[in-house]
Nucleic acid binder design. Sequence first.
DNA 1: GCCAACGTTGGC
DNA 2: GCCAACGTTGGC
Length: 159
Amino acid sequence: MRYWLMKSEPDDVSFDDVLAAPERTVSWYGVRNYQARNFMRDAMSVGDGVLFYHSSCALPGVAGIAEIASGPYPDATQFDPASHYHDPKATQETLRWISVDVRAVAQGRYLPLSEMRTVAALEDMVLLKKGSRLSVSPVTQAEWDAVVALIAPVCGKGA
DNA sequence: GCCAACGTTGGC
DNA sequence: GCCAACGTTGGC
């Protein structure tokens, strides 16, 4: 059991979108960074906790608690010439990119990035490191506990 | 829109 | 394998 932070642009897929999806589950597509991919492919397990983070928006921050709901499988957008995420170098035999399913578990108050920066227990988070751009990053148990305490999720597990 | 930081590409 | 150029990320 591990914990992760995963970034999504809410204009693309917001936490509310995941809550509204069938089974509260979406496919996490479009990761095009090898380090992030390797976390998804090699280190994630079904049931791992996910901090669902909104990036590239007016108020970036943690929007909810989710969990990993599948093992890795090929990201179909890499083969789709019409997709923004098309990768001409990916073939069925030598695929580069993978997806996992992510299921929404609980929602508390919105925790803005600006507030996270003021919390001592979070000061070593990968997310907060200068220049960090990883869209999928590991979260420690202590960081997870601190975030869950701050947002006080109201339903499901997540704690 | 700006810009710092980072990752990837490709010539050599 | 080096490294300059380029593209992308993402907060502000």
